[in-house]
């Protein structure tokens, strides 16, 4: 545990910074009081601006055990501190190609080297690049606290713009995806007003699994930056189930499949445009998956 005792000074602010190197220490401290959790720093520091640091900070970057990708019989596990660069360089199966493509679009190389999966999810931006590709593999998040572990579907974890179901005593230690949902091919498309370093106007992640008869066995399709929380498109997934996996597939997509989205008008694009664009992005991403299958 680095720097923790050294900060034990008199006054009402007993510890304003801790960098535990053991999980148990971290969770005990979290149980104790409210902390702002710092990992890669890529959301923490921009949000801080020039204001002084006053809240207690728990720096979890020394919890090396939370970094890395592994598999067991049932799941792929991505540790919470896995960086976007780690993901881009990983040997995850093609169902994660969407995630790997998204990893290369998160901010800049510098941000991909520092920013973590857990940070992207806990920051809960409607335009978080990591969310749609994880939704399409039915990802779940593992939340750990001194009192135990619980697992939530990602779709239930992020509850709103900058809102999550994480309790203040919990850490998002890992993201896991059931292997049954990690079959097939995937693709991710992000639309922005410039080539690099851009916040999405809209994005789409698609995973398609084929039957032997070249029809859609199962799919995961998600839209990002078009609602408060990125979301799957179940009506579309249902409509293409069993459809022929050929060039006609993208043609089955229509505005009706996007009617539950609620994009906003802002500086990056109008709501109407976002709806139109995300439909096109989904169509193209499906086309790319069909080509790969």
């Amino acid at each position: 545990m680095l720097a923790y005792e050294q900060l034990d000074f008199a006054g009402d602010c007993v510890m304003n910074y801790a960098r535990p190197d053991g999980m148990e220490d971290a969770l005990n401290l979290l149980a104790d009081r409210s902390w702002v959790v710092l990992a890669g720093g890529t959301d923490f520091y921009p949000a801080q601006g020039d204001r002084p640091l006053t809240q207690p900070i728990m720096d979890i970057s020394a919890l090396e055990q939370l970094r890395g990708i592994r598999e067991d019989d049932e799941y792929w596990h991505i540790g919470g501190l896995t960086t976007w660069a780690d993901i881009a360089a990983s040997a995850l199966p093609p169902a994660f190609d969407a995630l790997k493509l998204a990893a290369r679009e998160v901010g800049s190389v510098q941000i991909q080297n520092a920013g973590t999966v857990a940070g992207n999810l806990c920051n809960a931006s409607p335009a978080a690049d990591g969310v749609p590709p994880l939704l399409v593999v039915d990802a779940e998040v593992e939340l750990r606290s001194a009192s135990g572990v619980r697992t939530l579907p990602l779709s239930e974890f992020i509850t709103g713009n900058r809102k999550t179901a994480r309790r203040r005593d919990e850490l998002l230690v890992s993201v896991r995806a059931p292997k049954a949902s990690c079959a097939g091919q995937s693709h991710f498309l992000k639309l922005g007003s410039r080539r690099y370093l851009v916040i999405s106007i809209a994005m789409a992640a698609v995973r398609l699994q084929a039957t032997d008869a070249a029809t859609v066995a199962s799919s995961g399709i998600a839209a990002g930056a078009c609602s408060e929380v990125a979301t799957r498109l179940p009506a579309l997934e249902a409509d293409i189930a069993g459809a022929a996996l050929d060039a006609s597939l993208p043609g089955r997509i229509g505005p009706v499949h996007f009617k539950d989205l609620s994009p906003i008008n802002d500086i990056r694009g109008t709501a109407d445009y976002r709806l139109e664009a995300v439909e096109e992005l989904v169509r193209r991403a499906i086309g790319c998956c069909v080509e790969k299958l």
Binding site: Y17, G41, T42, F44, Y45, S108, I111, A114
Partner: peptide, 15 residues
């Protein structure tokens, strides 16, 4: 050896 923005790294993380 890893490229990063120094404005988003906590001093303690460089120990």
């Amino acid at each position: 050896g890893i490229l990063t923005c120094a404005c988003m790294v906590a001093a303690a993380q460089t120990g």
